[in-house]
Computed example of a mutant assay.
Amino acid sequence: MIKAILKFGIFSFLLLGINAYSQEKKHFTGYSNILQGIIPNQKTDFWILVHNNYGKNQEVRVVGTKKDYIPQSSGFNLFPDENGFFYVVSSSAGKIEYITDLPALRKFVGKIDNVDEAAIMLTDEGYFVDEEFNDLAGNYAEDSKNYYLEVGKLTSKECPYQKKHFTIAVNKATGEIGTVKDDGTYIELYNKKCTNNPRLLKIEKKEPPKDEPKKTNSTTKRR
């Protein structure tokens, strides 16, 4: 009986160890690398990931034998207020398509094949991988059923500028979003123009200084 209990204990410990290892957090390593993880939903003749930064186009990834295409003047971002933009040039059955927004990118991605595509899907839902604060909003883990992504979301562009972070489960088999855990606010910025700036409110609440009694100069006339 004791041996059976010991064996069960060791087995349970091993299972816990495997589960903990499988959910070890890893950092996302940049928007460019996330986009390079795309596995298109449809068969393509070729596809190209292009990054435009200050008017200069850089082909980040080329899959297949590319043909001439027209450089685009607009595209999509994976991060709010990101400098530059990305776009995808795709050719299927000889027809070239330009992917310049997130809904079209999500359609191009199609079925979720990996954690990078899960991050792209969540970006279309309003979340993002925050490279600047990746310890809070730029991680992921996985087990046999789900990807678990720690991502950010811009919850206010007004005063105060605010970001919150979330842990979101994405089902590997279906690509559906499961549990969404709100991990709280990690950025809250006020500026001088914010009417609800706590520092300004404190200043306004201070009592105005009492006026000092005015000194009167008395003059005497000499006769």
Score class of each variant (00 low, 15 high):
residue 2 I to R: 13
residue 5 I to D: 13
residue 5 I to C: 00
residue 7 K to Q: 14
residue 9 G to V: 10
residue 9 G to Y: 13
residue 10 I to G: 10
residue 14 L to D: 12
residue 14 L to M: 13
residue 18 I to S: 08
residue 19 N to T: 12
residue 19 N to S: 14
residue 20 A to G: 06
residue 23 Q to I: 09
residue 24 E to W: 07
residue 27 H to P: 00
residue 30 G to E: 05
residue 31 Y to A: 14
residue 32 S to A: 12
residue 37 G to T: 05
residue 37 G to I: 04
residue 40 P to T: 02
residue 45 D to G: 07
residue 46 F to V: 09
residue 52 N to Q: 12
residue 53 N to D: 15
residue 54 Y to R: 11
residue 56 K to L: 11
residue 56 K to H: 05
residue 58 Q to A: 13
residue 59 E to L: 09
residue 61 R to D: 09
residue 61 R to H: 09
residue 63 V to G: 01
residue 65 T to S: 09
residue 66 K to T: 15
residue 70 I to N: 12
residue 72 Q to R: 10
residue 73 S to F: 15
residue 75 G to D: 08
residue 77 N to K: 11
residue 78 L to I: 02
residue 78 L to R: 03
residue 81 D to P: 00
residue 85 F to K: 06
residue 88 V to R: 10
residue 88 V to W: 10
residue 88 V to K: 08
residue 95 K to Q: 13
residue 95 K to E: 15
residue 98 Y to E: 04
residue 98 Y to P: 04
residue 101 D to H: 11
residue 101 D to M: 11
residue 102 L to T: 05
residue 103 P to K: 04
residue 104 A to D: 13
residue 107 K to T: 10
residue 108 F to W: 07
residue 108 F to C: 04
residue 111 K to V: 06
residue 115 V to G: 01
residue 117 E to G: 02
residue 120 I to T: 07
residue 121 M to I: 09
residue 126 G to S: 08
residue 127 Y to I: 06
residue 128 F to W: 02
residue 130 D to P: 00
residue 134 N to D: 15
residue 135 D to F: 09
residue 136 L to E: 15
residue 136 L to F: 05
residue 136 L to C: 08
residue 138 G to A: 03
residue 139 N to T: 13
residue 145 K to M: 07
residue 147 Y to G: 02
residue 149 L to K: 04
residue 156 S to G: 00
residue 157 K to P: 00
residue 158 E to H: 13
residue 159 C to M: 12
residue 162 Q to D: 04
residue 164 K to W: 02
residue 168 I to F: 01
residue 170 V to N: 04
residue 172 K to T: 05
residue 174 T to M: 03
residue 175 G to P: 01
residue 176 E to F: 08
residue 177 I to V: 12
residue 179 T to I: 14
residue 179 T to P: 00
residue 180 V to I: 14
residue 184 G to K: 11
residue 185 T to I: 15
residue 188 E to L: 09
residue 188 E to H: 09
residue 190 Y to G: 04
residue 190 Y to P: 00
residue 191 N to Q: 05
residue 192 K to A: 02
residue 193 K to S: 15
residue 194 C to T: 01
residue 197 N to A: 04
residue 197 N to D: 06
residue 200 L to C: 02
residue 201 L to P: 01
residue 203 I to K: 03
residue 211 D to Y: 10
residue 214 K to H: 12
residue 220 T to Q: 14
